[in-house]
Amino acid sequence: MSIAEKKAAEEKATKDNPEVIISVENVSLAYSAGNSSNVLEDIGLKLHQGEFVCLLGPSGCGKSTLLKIIAGLIPPTKGNAAMDGEVIKGPDWHRGVVFQQPPLYSWLSTRENVRFGLKMRKIPKQEGLKLADEYLHKVGLLEYAAHKPYELSGGMKQRVAIARALVNSPRVLLMDEPFGALDALTREEMVMLLRNIWRETGCTILFITHDVDEALSLGTRVLVMSRNPGQIIREFKTSFTWEFSGENPSRTRYSQNFVEMREKILDLIHKQKLYSTSSLE
């Protein structure tokens, strides 16, 4: 076998069997030791290199809790989450996190907010400033590098938060409803920006949202969780994100395949809400 043939075979094998970066095994969580009711129960999940996984489910099903466990912010009651085979025991810059309300430091400029993580990692100042400007350029905010957070709109603040997470070149980006507080137009712009950044960087993304259309237009996989306790009950493999990158994305949104999958997901979530309501009666 020639070198070129061997390389092609290796690339095909990688594509067909992508590397597992995050592995969640039998994870359960109760907020107190004496609480017999779990927030999460027996969660199993694998995130592969380069995936964009969207997590959906009714409010209170534990989506954010699962993300925090993967981020290393809270430990599970049972089971474990691991990265590259090593149990996650705390936060790590290899796992960037973006929340709905970007926790920017009001006394720092946009540039210094983006550079903050690099500074904590002792990256030389000039290298850090160069990287900060590079990622501000990626999110379209380089001209606002000297501005303070209070001078930015909500969408701009979220761009800064994304740049701050990405500047460390994390292998995994964890996003907890990052566009939930934005208006519809800004939200659509952020969706397009995130899609482009994902394709450019090849970063693995776990994205929590309540918006089914948003999940289908971004994800390569969409996972639906149940309520009380939170479990992953259905997985949908999708390819709409590539179609949304084409010349006529609105055609994809109204295609038969998109509409049918959207209705299936909405029906699943609606049934979870009905079940939760009836259980209280």
Rank of each mutant, 00 (worst) to 15 (best):
A4D: 15
K6N: 15
A8D: 11
E10N: 13
E19T: 12
V20T: 11
I22R: 01
N26C: 05
N26Y: 07
A33T: 08
N35T: 13
S36A: 14
N38T: 03
L40Q: 01
L40H: 01
L40P: 01
H48Y: 12
F52M: 05
V53F: 08
C54T: 03
G60A: 09
C61F: 07
K63R: 07
S64H: 02
S64C: 06
K68Y: 11
I74E: 12
P75Y: 07
M83D: 04
P91R: 04
D92I: 07
V97Q: 02
V97L: 13
V98M: 05
Q100R: 02
Q101L: 14
P103D: 14
W107S: 12
S109H: 06
R111Y: 09
V114H: 01
R115L: 07
R115A: 11
F116G: 02
G117A: 12
M120T: 09
Q126E: 15
Q126P: 08
E127V: 14
G128H: 00
L129G: 15
L129H: 15
A132I: 10
K138I: 05
H147Q: 12
Y150E: 08
Y150G: 05
L152Q: 05
G155Q: 05
M156Y: 04
V160R: 02
A161W: 01
N168F: 12
V172Q: 03
L173R: 00
L174Q: 02
M175I: 09
P178I: 07
A184G: 10
T186P: 06
E188H: 08
E188M: 10
R195T: 04
R199P: 05
E200H: 13
T209I: 12
H210Q: 11
T220N: 14
T220A: 06
R221T: 08
V222H: 01
L223D: 00
L223K: 08
M225D: 02
M225Y: 05
P229A: 08
Q231T: 12
E235F: 11
T238W: 04
F240W: 00
E243G: 07
N248Q: 05
R251D: 06
T252C: 00
T252A: 00
R253Q: 03
S255L: 04
E263T: 11
I265M: 08
D267W: 11
L268P: 02
K273C: 15
Y275D: 15
T277E: 13
L280F: 11
L280A: 13
